[in-house]
Nucleic acid binder design. Structure first.
Lengths: 345, 345
DNA sequence: CTAAATTTGACCAGCGCTGTCATCTTGGCT
DNA sequence: AGCCAAGATGACAGCGCTGGTCAAATTTAG
């Protein structure tokens, strides 16, 4: 039915071991044999049986994705990217939803790795920012790649995919500044997520660079939720001097702010500009659609998986391993921001 | 490191063959030996190595979940239920997002089954309602369980989990009727999804039973999206005689309707009641929160997986196989519906 | 208490692949 | 040409389990 390594070996006129060598990128296979084998592989559409591989090898061919994120869109996108990359490299993806705040989380992760013999793990926030998880995995000598907020590749750590929240937030803030806004508020996400801090820093930097200064009353703590956005906007709108623009730490918060504004009969963007972050489907379902920063989650996930596979594969190009991809979410301008609110002043 | 079948055999004082018999539910194992082995399994926390099982057996121990649904919350919930059930039975879950409308979809599914040697498949709408997919799977002799809309178990088909959309819609409509509403509109979902038709039928039945009749102008075709809800509400609100309540085919549509109402300065529920369907997180993020019907997606998914495993396991209790679970989503009353709008009349 | 039926174990092959180690090539050197 | 080391390739065992066969042990029924 399905081609096995034996079929490929016969077809190419080599031993199965040589086919195995080619499949595993092992050195000491001559150029022409390599090509011969590859040709046979392609012709027979050979795909190694992962069960056999797992059984025979000390290594494993599945990676895990642990998640605990209320944002379903984010998870779905991540999965998509991971799956694509896994498929490409003949790996399997094991998904494991769990509760990051559970006290036994480290043991749970350990057990998962052991039981499912995982080759590696993809960690997204909040897991990617939990030092005890990273420590446990390092101790177990399991590879992992973290997707974290940051802009400057670290020379000591090579297993991260960085999202430059700072720069993206800087851009969004700049967009608002360029429209003419000077009284801009910021609705924070969860304190524990470094992304929120990075975005706030980018926000402040843009304002400072413009020669303005940030009004502490305009920086509202909160968390990554719709409700938090409603609350935050309520506080801001109750201030004697209202801001003319709000930059929310993600689209959900922005949607909440938008909602509160609608409730208060504040026209968007005529009387108030609102920007979000992430470009989730959410940001297109609001009215008006949200100006936001596009975070290409699928692509980010795929990159993370690629990085993991490079680690995992024993004979990888060492130079490539140290590449730390940095993603800068791009500004997406929609109808929720305009110059109108500040021109009236 | 990890316990193998040999360890269990030694621990229980039996041969590995007997352990294997127990693991695979084979007959002709005496009660007490069975217990002895189970005790050893529990004590050693034995989990069969799925790679070895897959390799040795003609059967496989992984099931697939194919999805193509814009509703990320739905998918996440489904996954959760499937994973729980898989874990319990020692199966693996393979997820496969794809495009249901792609012309090569049947071949794609076939290839997936072949390549990953799937024991079975879980099909949700729209896949569960595509006859050519079911036919292809039957031809391949691959088990599958469909999650579909319906209320009466079919005697010929035994691989379905039913969601009684009719009754749930009946209940929601009744709730509106009991509040005193008589002019109730219905915003349809996609025509291709039978759930929309079932919900509409339940809606009509409730109205008819009340001795009233449905106004054709109040039945607005559409699809399962926020935008469709906005459009639908717009049409309804433009009618000379506005309805006093709207029953939307799902929460997203309801959210769209809610949004349009807010835009038109129609107070909810004072001037108009709106109900949704599904009880997705969406329904709690709107203001006011939506009256809806709770569809326990995780539980439904888990049931579907259980059903599939019963099919797949060769020595299962035949009587159980023919049980077709029927879920009736329960009414959840929140602030978006009240008697106010119809009392004013 | 015996014959028949049931339960269990010993043993083997083999699933498709990798790891180890032995063997065969190759090419550089004298 | 002859020799040797390094490189390329192959033979073979074994990963943990299932499925089959058959014989031995045990239970059950008559």
């Amino acid at each position: 039915m399905k081609a096995t390594i034996n079929d490929v070996a016969k077809h190419a006129g080599v031993s199965i071991k040589t086919v195995s060598r080619v499949m595993n990128n092992e050195p000491s296979v001559r150029q022409d044999t390599h090509e011969k084998v590859m040709a046979a592989i392609n012709e027979l559409q050979y795909q190694p049986n992962s069960a056999a591989r797992n059984l025979a090898s000390t290594r494993s061919y599945s990676i895990g994705y642990i998640y605990d994120n209320p944002n379903a869109y984010y998870i779905i996108d991540m999965q998509k990217g991971l799956l694509d990359s896994c498929k490409k490299h003949g790996y399997e993806l094991l998904i494991h939803p769990t509760n990051a705040k559970s006290p036994g989380i480290v043991d749970e992760v350990k057990e998962l790795v052991n039981k499912s013999r995982l080759a590696g793990l993809i960690l997204t926030p909040p897991f990617s920012e939990m030092p005890h998880i990273a420590a446990a995995l390092e101790e177990m000598k399991v590879d992992f790649v973290r997707i974290i907020s940051g802009s400057t590749p670290s020379p000591t750590v090579n297993n991260c995919v960085l999202i430059d929240d700072f720069t993206a937030a800087f851009k969004i803030t700049n967009h608002l500044l360029e429209l003419g806004h000077t009284d801009i508020a910021f609705l924070c996400g969860d304190e524990e997520h470094s992304s929120s801090g990075e975005r706030l820093a980018g926000f402040k930097a843009a304002i400072t660079k413009r020669g303005l200064h940030t009004n502490p009353k305009y920086i509202v703590p909160g968390h990554y939720s719709f409700e938090s956005g409603v609350e935050g906007a309520k506080k801001l709108m109750a201030l004697p001097q209202r801001p003319t623009a709000i930059f929310a730490c993600n689209d959900e918060i922005a949607a909440g702010a938008l909602f509160h504004a609608r409730l208060m009969n504040i026209q968007i963007p005529e009387q108030l500009s609102i920007a979000g972050f992430e470009n989730s489907p959410f940001s297109r379902q609001t009215w008006p659609p949200l100006t936001t920063a596009h975070q290409p989650n699928s692509t980010i996930a795929a990159q993370a998986a690629e990085l993991l596979f490079k680690h995992t594969r024993p004979n990888a190009n060492k130079a490539q391993i140290h590449a730390q991809p940095v993603f800068i979410p791009e500004l997406v301008v929609r109808e929720s921001t305009s110059a109108q609110a500040c021109q009236k002043k």
